Simulated assay, not measured.
Amino acid sequence: MSMNTDVHTNIDKAAAFTATKLETLRNEISTLLSASPFNEAMTIITTGSYGRAEATEESDLDWFIIFDRDQPVEVISDEIQGINEVITRHIDKVTGDTGTFGKDAIVRFSEMQNNIGGNDDSNESLTRRLLFLLEGTWLYGEERFADYRRQLLEKYIKPDAPGEQMPRFLLNDIIRYYRTIATDFEFKTSERKKPWGLRNIKLRFSRKLIYFSGIIVAAELKELGWQQKIEKGLALFEQFPLERIRALGADLAATPVILATYESFMARLAQPEVRQALEGVVKEQRLENPEYKELRKTSHEFSKALHKWLKEKYGEEHPIHHALVF
């Protein structure tokens, strides 16, 4: 497949669209909550395409609320209703029905940073926590969002951790999350009969991008002192995933290929007829659908480019390669 590795029309268009929508939502939600007695206890997070600066008119908005008061969430029911009205007024597509995101997704911050890997660490908790780090941004409460992210990163990276090592706790949870969503995909499509085609393509591109953009943060934190690890980690997580890859790999041959293949993915999904065709694809007949076949082929190029990028950026002696296997 021939691709122009220098033109990223759909990536740039989506970034501009995302920025405009986020500004509108932030302004209206801020106005809405300005008189609320609980406004200093509420932080609204968005992840997904809006967290990655990849949103289009076809995108839904994954969001949840961190409410840090020792009071039942019912006390902010009016605020939640108002927030939901703002979002549905500007976002046409309804948030998914899993309960992980949307107006019913309200958590305490302690729930996000405690029990990591424990019996109470549900798939919902894992998903919110990792997406908050890897691709999250704020809709309300910018300063609290930044403080929560710092606290969460400090939970993963301890002051007494050896400076020469990568943050293995963080890396292992990123790996666990990626493997969980891959397994969850099989469950949802096989057991719950969720649509297969579009989910599969997103797993091949955007979900893989999230994972990759996280493991390179862990790789970058090798040979740094504790405070340096925290500050650099926060700076990297502040960047959108594609921006992170582009910045760290500015001189790598694999970077233009990553951007070109991802541009191709976004260009196809920007076409409503393509999304509709993919939504109708079932696993047993996937190779009979030309749209799926083309994107599947491009996804192999995308994966190869990511692998090449990792080898180009970090020589064979770098521990990231060993850590991803063992």
Rank of each mutant, 00 (worst) to 15 (best):
V94R: 01
K202N: 10
Q228L: 08
D121N: 06
L32H: 07
S299V: 03
L306I: 11
I83A: 01
S36M: 14
G163N: 04
T180A: 09
I230A: 11
F205P: 03
Q165I: 03
P241M: 04
K304P: 00
P72I: 00
I45Y: 01
K222T: 08
E284W: 08
V73H: 12
D6P: 04
F326V: 12
L269R: 15
I258S: 02
Q113H: 05
E54H: 02
Y262C: 11
T95R: 03
S206W: 07
G96F: 00
T47E: 04
P167N: 06
N114R: 14
T9L: 14
S110T: 10
K208R: 15
P241E: 05
A260R: 13
R246S: 10
Y156A: 01
G51L: 02
H90Q: 11
S264R: 13
R268Q: 15
A35N: 12
D6T: 13
P256N: 08
G118D: 09
A161P: 01
I44L: 12
L152H: 09
E223Y: 10
N172M: 14
D147N: 11
S206H: 13
L248E: 11
P256V: 06
A270R: 06
Q227D: 14
K297S: 14
Y156L: 01
E291F: 10
L130S: 02
N114A: 08
M166L: 10
T31Y: 08
F17T: 01
V257C: 01
G233T: 09
A55V: 05
L126D: 02
H90S: 05
Y156P: 00
K297Y: 07
D6S: 08
I181G: 07
L278C: 13
A250Y: 06
A277D: 14
R244E: 07
T98M: 04
D62G: 04
E312M: 08
S2D: 11
L224P: 07
L152N: 10
T47S: 07
L25M: 04
F185K: 15
E164R: 09
R207T: 10
I116Q: 02
Y156V: 02
D184E: 13
A53S: 15
K194S: 07
I106F: 02
E28I: 05
L242E: 05
E40H: 15
D184R: 12
E111N: 09
V73L: 03
T261Y: 11
T255E: 12
K13S: 15
S30T: 10
S125M: 14
A260K: 10
T298I: 08
D184V: 06
G141K: 14
A41T: 03
Q151I: 01
D251E: 13
L278N: 13
W226N: 02
D12N: 15
F187H: 13
G163M: 04
V94S: 00
A250N: 11
N27A: 09
R286C: 00
L32G: 03
E58Y: 12
T47W: 00
V94C: 02
I230N: 10
Q71I: 09
A35L: 12
A15C: 07
